Simulated assay, not measured.
Amino acid sequence: MFLITLTYRVPLTAVDAALPAHIDYLQQQYAAGVFLASGRRTPRTGGVILATAADRQTLNATLAADPFYQQGIADYDVIEFTPTMTAPGLEKLKEY
């Protein structure tokens, strides 16, 4: 499992201009079962994505398709981890 943080490199006006394409990309990754959760950071300096992928190379290829990545909108920091404990109702996360 992977925790990805995005940090914006450009003003929010540029982020907002690219947002519709980024949302389409996110929806594609949810449909493919790659992304499990995502959202804006508070304050709005970037975003966070919880993802699953076969390996880091596969995840890197997935992230490279993000319009935010392609347009240089954000920097990405990826942390790989193995969930060993979860809150009730989230036990499925341990399968990743």
Results as ranks from 00 to 15, higher is better:
1 M>G: 03
1 M>L: 14
1 M>I: 00
1 M>W: 01
2 F>Y: 15
3 L>N: 07
4 I>D: 08
4 I>M: 04
5 T>R: 08
5 T>D: 00
5 T>K: 03
6 L>V: 03
6 L>S: 07
7 T>H: 13
7 T>S: 14
9 R>C: 13
9 R>W: 05
9 R>K: 15
10 V>Y: 09
10 V>P: 03
11 P>A: 00
12 L>I: 09
13 T>G: 02
13 T>M: 03
13 T>R: 13
14 A>S: 10
15 V>M: 03
16 D>L: 13
17 A>K: 06
17 A>V: 08
18 A>S: 12
21 A>V: 05
22 H>S: 11
23 I>Q: 09
23 I>N: 05
24 D>I: 09
24 D>S: 12
24 D>K: 09
26 L>M: 15
26 L>K: 13
28 Q>H: 12
28 Q>W: 02
30 Y>I: 12
30 Y>P: 08
31 A>G: 08
31 A>W: 03
33 G>I: 02
34 V>F: 11
34 V>R: 14
35 F>H: 05
35 F>C: 09
35 F>T: 06
36 L>C: 04
36 L>P: 02
37 A>H: 00
37 A>L: 11
38 S>R: 02
38 S>G: 01
38 S>W: 01
38 S>N: 07
39 G>P: 08
40 R>L: 13
44 R>F: 06
46 G>P: 05
47 G>H: 09
48 V>D: 00
50 L>Y: 09
50 L>H: 03
51 A>S: 09
53 A>E: 06
53 A>H: 09
54 A>E: 12
54 A>G: 13
54 A>W: 01
54 A>K: 09
54 A>I: 00
55 D>L: 03
56 R>I: 01
57 Q>L: 12
58 T>S: 14
60 N>V: 12
61 A>V: 02
62 T>G: 03
63 L>C: 11
63 L>H: 08
64 A>P: 07
64 A>N: 08
66 D>V: 11
67 P>N: 02
68 F>V: 03
68 F>A: 06
69 Y>F: 15
70 Q>T: 10
70 Q>H: 02
70 Q>D: 00
73 I>D: 01
73 I>N: 03
74 A>Y: 06
74 A>G: 09
75 D>Q: 06
76 Y>E: 09
77 D>G: 05
77 D>I: 11
77 D>H: 14
78 V>L: 07
79 I>T: 13
80 E>Q: 13
80 E>H: 10
80 E>R: 08
81 F>G: 08
81 F>H: 06
82 T>S: 10
82 T>M: 10
82 T>I: 11
84 T>K: 12
86 T>K: 06
86 T>V: 10
87 A>G: 06
88 P>C: 05
88 P>I: 05
89 G>C: 04
90 L>N: 06
91 E>W: 06
91 E>G: 07
91 E>D: 12
91 E>K: 07
92 K>A: 15
92 K>D: 14
92 K>P: 01
93 L>M: 14
93 L>V: 01
94 K>P: 07
95 E>G: 02
95 E>P: 00
95 E>V: 04
96 Y>P: 02
96 Y>R: 15
96 Y>S: 14
